[in-house]
Each structure stands twice: as structure tokens, then as C-alpha cells.
Measured scan of single mutants.
Amino acid sequence: MASQGTKRSYEQMETDGERQNATEIRASVGKMIDGIGRFYIQMCTELKLSDYEGRLIQNSLTIERMVLSAFDERRNKYLEEHPSAGKDPKKTGGPIYKRVDRKWMRELVLYDKEEIRRIWRQANNGDDATAGLTHMMIWHSNLNDTTYQRTRALVRTGMDPRMCSLMQGSTLPRRSGAAGAAVKGVGTMVMELIRMIKRGINDRNFWRGENGRKTRSAYERMCNILKGKFQTAAQRAMMDQVRESRNPGNAEIEDLIFLARSALILRGSVAHKSCLPACVYGPAVASGYDFEKEGYSLVGIDPFKLLQNSQVYSLIRPNENPAHKSQLVWMACNSAAFEDLRVLSFIRGTKVSPRGKLSTRGVQIASNENMDAMESSTLELRSRYWAIRTRSGGNTNQQRASAGQISVQPAFSVQRNLPFDKPTIMAAFTGNTEGRTSDMRAEIIRMMEGAKPEEMSFQGRGVFELSDERAANPIVPSFDMSNEGSYFFGDNAEEYDN
């Protein structure tokens, strides 16, 4: 993207840094990872977990959730003011799984939030270390993106479920800051804005008074975040219109849905970061690795190297396929839920299948599930090659597409044709070009129609051997075009429920 120079890199967003050079960025990201790792080690000690239990991804998720809940100030305040039966607002906890007599047992633990905050700050040299908290939120978000298709949420806001490739980060909490905003897809931002506008339509006082002023500035800020994701002048001009509207209503909703559809071809720039579970960072720190000293990046080879040398386990339900569970977590670790499966298959070195073909449910185990038949197995999170994460949407291309997802959002900077089903997408653009945004709409449609099938995206960008740390010898991959490109292809993934 041309304006790259004016933006802070995501590592800076990730670490609240002012302008830093590459070495400083690597050190501050490393410091953040160190903090998460030290916190995780301490929690495993508190909970008396064995090494194996500490490497269980379900335990990692519970521990991450506990610290996120302990620092969720708004919710904590709300819980104190609106006490609900049987919930102690000062405590947080969740299921911890232990191996007892050759069987997995679930144990519900409860801790004072104050105590968890103390352990977290102690692991982070006394700081609140917001960057580390956001990092864990993005890992949870990436896992949700890989596990669930947001059909219901899309339909509720009037969008087409086939636009799911635009929904990265749709389950990120509001408090995820600049680093969170960077990884949100165009569809996620559109959905947040539509929800806001709908509230304004239904509630006369939404934009009024002292609160209304705050609401208005939040609305304009979200519009600017979305505008910054678009790469064409016409899309940005249309966002200006939406932002400046005196009284946002149905016309703005129409414009936003139009823009979301246009992003299936004229893709937005959305950041991709490899955020790993805390149970990967903990053992690495415990083994003596100093992330701050060595430096770390979320968008280069580092996460690949770390996963190459990590042992992570997962509980497996009786009829689940461990290899499929591994694929789910591998995609989440690489922030690749909406990437082209052919690119992923090449990088991973084994075939990556669409969601609907995987015999696996989510990673988390519900409290009512029976533990008797639970097994555990090693997650295979290694890769054959590594590639640089991208934040450009890439230019655009036609490809055989599917009944489910009709476009992709690249996660890796790797040369390819970008699949999208042009006739299906263009069919949504018939007729409606009147109104105050008509010239911009016409211009956007013209650009979409001009998108050429034979153009290559990320020209000359390749993948790298894991021994090639400096990215000196790019390998331009070859793809098996007979395979499906979309992950949520004609899909039956479970729906995400809060």
C-alpha cells in the first residue's frame, strides 16, 4: 500500500510504541512475548500442572481467558453494579484439565481477579502490559475465525453469508486497541457500523446529549479505520460520505453494504499476525530463551520457528480426527482463516481442507461434555516452508469459486491468482447506482469489472525454506488448481455463540 510509510507498523501498534527502528520493534515485541511466557509459567505453578498438562491447549485457553477477564475493567465495573446470582464479580476462573488415573478430569478453578492481575503485572515488570493482553485477544479471535462461520451475524446486519472472507476479527472485544483495529476485516468494521446506525434509528437519543457526542466521535473513528483499509480513492470518498452524514440511517447502511461487497474484489488491507497460545510461549521462556534479547516478529519467520520446536497437546472428542484438529489450530496460529487453501497447503506441506470436510468441533470443551471418553493427542503445528504475512489485500483475480465463501483475504505475501467468483459478486451490483453516491458507485463498479483474471497478485513473492531466515531465496510455489480455494466452501461450520 502506498501510504505504508505514514502508518505505524503493526509491531508498533502491538507494543504501543512511538516510531521505533526494526531492532527496537523486535525487542519490544519480544518483551511482550516474554511477559506472556513468564505469566503462563507462574500460572502453571499456581495450578500445580504437570509439564504435559501445561502444554494442553484447553488449559492455555482457560488461563488466557482468566487474565483477560481480570483486566476487563468495563465488564468488571458492570458486574459490580449489576450483581447477578451466583456470579462473584471479583473472581474469575474456568475449567482446568488434569490427568488422573490414566483419565482426563475437569476441575473448575476460581481465583481472585486481583490475584491474577498481581501475577500478570509481576510477570511483566510491574506494568499492565496491555500489548500482551491484546495479543491474547487476537489469538482467540484468530481461533474463532478458523472455527466458526459468522453466517447468522452477517444475515442479521443485512449482509450476504458468502462475504465471510471479510469477517476477520469479528469476535475481537471493543477494547483491543490499535492492534485489534489493524486485524479487523472490512466486513467486521461494516458490521460494527451498521449495528451502531441501527441503534440510532431505533433509539432517538442515541446521537443526542453528552453521551451522543461520545457516540458520534466513536462512529467517526470507526469510519476512519474502515476508510484506511480501502485502497481505492472511490471507496475512500464513499467512506467520507458515510462519516460526514448528519443523521446516519438506511442510506448509510446501503452504502456500507455496497462497500463491503466491493471489497470482495477491490480488497481492503487487513493486517495478519501470528499470535500463538500462551502454552507455546511459556515452555520456550522456561527453556531459557530470551525473546527480548533475541527479538521477535509476528509477521516473519519467528512464529514458524517457534511452532517448529513446540509440543502442544489437545483434548480430542471420541469421533474427532486429531489431524483435522491440528489443521484448525495451525490455521489459527498463522492467522489464515480466509487465505486461499492452495497457498496454505503449499506452505504447510500437507493438504489443507475446507472447514466442512474437517471432523472436528471447536477447541474448547463445553462444561456439560462427558470427560470419560476424552483422549488427548499432539497437535501437528509444523510447516514445510515459511512466508511473510501481508497486510495488503493483493490485486484481484477471477477463479472458480464456491457456493460458500466467494473470495479470499490473503494472509501471506505469496504470488498467486486470487480466487473470487466474479459473476456471483457482480450480480449483486445491478441497477442500484442512484442517489448521492452514484458517481462513486459507478466508478467502483467500473474498477471491479476491469479486474483481470490473468493478473498475478504479489508478483514474484515466494515462500522460503525454514533454514532461509533472511528470506534470501524465494520459492514461487505451484498450486494444484483442481483443489478448492475457499475454506468455508459450501460450508456447515458451527455458528459462533458468545
Rank of each mutant, 00 (worst) to 15 (best):
M1I: 05
A2Q: 00
S3D: 00
T6C: 00
T6V: 00
Y10N: 13
Q12M: 07
D16I: 02
E18G: 06
R19V: 03
N21Q: 03
E24M: 11
D34G: 12
R38W: 12
Y40F: 10
C44V: 15
Y52D: 03
I57A: 09
L61C: 12
M66H: 05
F71D: 09
E73D: 08
E73L: 15
R75N: 08
R75S: 05
K77Y: 00
Y78Q: 02
E81Q: 05
S84N: 15
K87L: 01
P89L: 07
P89G: 12
T92N: 14
R102K: 14
Y111M: 15
E115N: 08
I116H: 01
I119G: 09
R121T: 06
D128C: 07
L133K: 08
M137H: 07
T146L: 02
T151G: 04
R152T: 08
A153D: 06
T157A: 14
T157L: 09
M159V: 08
P161V: 12
R162M: 07
S165W: 00
L172Q: 14
R174K: 09
A178Y: 11
A179K: 11
A182D: 01
A182F: 10
I197D: 12
K198V: 08
K214G: 02
S217R: 04
A218F: 10
Y219A: 07
I225F: 12
A234V: 09
A234W: 05
A237W: 01
M238R: 02
D240V: 06
Q241E: 10
Q241S: 05
R243A: 10
P248C: 15
A251D: 10
L256Q: 12
F258Y: 12
F258W: 04
R267G: 05
G268E: 09
S269Q: 09
C279M: 09
Y281K: 08
A286L: 12
S287P: 10
R317G: 04
P318S: 14
N319V: 14
N321Y: 12
H324W: 11
W330Y: 10
W330D: 14
M331D: 03
A332M: 13
N334V: 03
A337Q: 08
E339Y: 03
D340F: 08
R342E: 05
R348K: 12
T350I: 05
T350W: 11
P354L: 08
T360F: 08
Q364A: 07
Q364T: 14
Q364P: 03
S367V: 04
D372W: 07
T378V: 06
S383M: 07
G393L: 02
N395Q: 10
R400E: 08
Q409I: 14
Q409E: 01
Q409C: 15
P419Y: 06
F420L: 13
F429Y: 15
T430M: 03
T430V: 05
E434Q: 14
M440V: 01
I445R: 07
R446E: 15
R446W: 00
M448C: 01
M448H: 06
E455R: 11
Q459L: 05
G462W: 03
E465F: 00
R470K: 15
A471S: 02
A472P: 10
A472S: 12
N473W: 11
P474S: 06
V476K: 00
D480M: 03
S486W: 02
F489W: 01
E495F: 01
D497N: 15
